[in-house]
Design a protein around this nucleic acid. Structure first.
Lengths: 237, 237
DNA sequence: AGTATTTTATTTGTCGACAGGTAATCCGCC
DNA sequence: GGCGGATTACCTGTCGACAAATAAAATACT
């Protein structure tokens, strides 16, 4: 699970597999804020780090740029994209809507195999909460909701939800030091309830619970932001 | 407006501008089905056509692949992605939801400058209908709804909507020969009503009209598909 | 001393070429 | 004559190098 991010495998990888590795590694580092917003991305440096030519590196960067995770100033530097606090309201809106829509669809369309995946994710999330593993919590929470979305079988929703949740991971990671212990446990309980209602194929109730769950998270993030004004003022522009 | 798609400008373009040209050209050709699903994309051929090296071509292709417009079989060919009729239901769902959400937000948040853009798009759409310009109709209809989405000021919604509408363009383009004349006029009227309600800042009614509009389009596409079974059976796999 | 201009240096964007891999072709064998 | 294996050919993935563009440094000038 914990692949060292600085691994420079000299073992020859399959042709074409290099780009994917660079892409995923950088993606994770950006989302986990190991590469904070504004960090310069040096192609030559990455070329040395992954011990490959600049060409595959560039292709990975193009993909990241297409997702909006990095910003390329033409002919100049390329940097990690900033967290757009101006669009925070848009983020909350989209998050809430996707929570509701995916929960609703999942209740209508889930199959046994989906259920297994969802339960596995929930178990990992519960374990992360038990272990006070904040970063793991954030990641497994994301996986849990993606699993529900996939049970809904709508690629448009799943893709947007993935993007929204990943943006959320960056934001939550900003405030992870503010976490207290009781809220996460509440999330575990709420997740369990969502699963139960989904199994009962109650779409309306799934929708309602998802909306509540979303409000919970939105309130939490809002409280973090207003409470810890230092972080906000130290944001990179 | 009408940039020739096969233009091979020998005039030296600004550094970095080449990729964007290739990307947009190919994107349009794919969406307009000039490059039908399954068409092989040959890098060397494109390199000759745009008279540039394969490197910038590849970067454009990576972007297109990230959007799902092309599919790359590793170490083998890369082809234009197929229209996924299995997920047609998902497409209708997402289309309807985005119509509603963006119309609702636009009614709440539009500003004067948005209104100008929306009216301009609507004028172009009406003109295309008047001219019986089917391809122009499809394109300007898309632009009209994107303009409304942008007035809603939620980048998540706008981006997903753009993707959905572009997929829709490909599907509509498949059946454009089935168009009869009265339906497009109805769309013009419906668009006008949507604008009026939006100006009145009536979010609920905007939502309702958008849902109706979506149903209209869904019904139309469904009728095309069931009526013209030949096209469906000749789909590339 | 401060500012404008030239020079240098670094980094990106592009190129041509090579190597690996897959599919089609050709040949030998049953 | 048909089938299986080796060979060929073509295309993709990767590489090292060069050129343009921008930012920083150094120099000249007021």
């Amino acid at each position: 699970m914990a692949k060292g991010p600085a691994e420079r495998d000299t073992e020859q990888v399959k042709r074409g597999g290099g780009v994917a590795r660079v892409y995923e590694t950088l993606r994770n580092e950006i989302i986990d804020l190991q590469l904070p917003p504004g960090s310069p991305i040096d192609e030559t440096e990455l070329s040395a780090r992954f011990s490959m030519s600049r060409t595959p590196i560039r292709e990975a960067l193009v993909r990241l740029a297409a997702e909006g995770l990095i910003t390329t100033l033409t002919n100049r530097a390329t940097i990690v994209s900033n967290i757009d606090f101006v669009q925070l309201g848009a983020f909350f809106d989209a998050l809430t809507l996707m929570y509701r829509v995916t929960a609703r669809l999942a209740a209508q369309r889930y199959e046994e195999s989906d259920l297994a995946k969802i339960r596995a994710c929930q178990a990992e999330f519960a374990k992360a909460v038990e272990d006070r593993n904040v970063l793991g919590m954030i990641a497994t929470n994301r996986d849990f909701h993606i699993a529900i979305a996939e049970a809904g079988r709508n690629k448009y929703y799943t893709d947007l939800f993935r993007r929204v949740l990943d943006d959320g991971r960056r934001i939550l990671r900003l405030y992870y030091h503010s976490y207290d212990d009781n809220l996460p446990r509440q999330y575990v309980v709420e997740h369990e309830r969502m699963i139960s209602v989904m199994i009962a194929r109650d779409a309306e109730e799934s929708d309602r619970l998802a909306a509540e769950h979303a409000d919970q998270i939105v309130r939490q993030i809002r409280s973090y932001i207003s409470a810890d004004s230092r972080s906000v003022s130290s944001l990179p522009l």
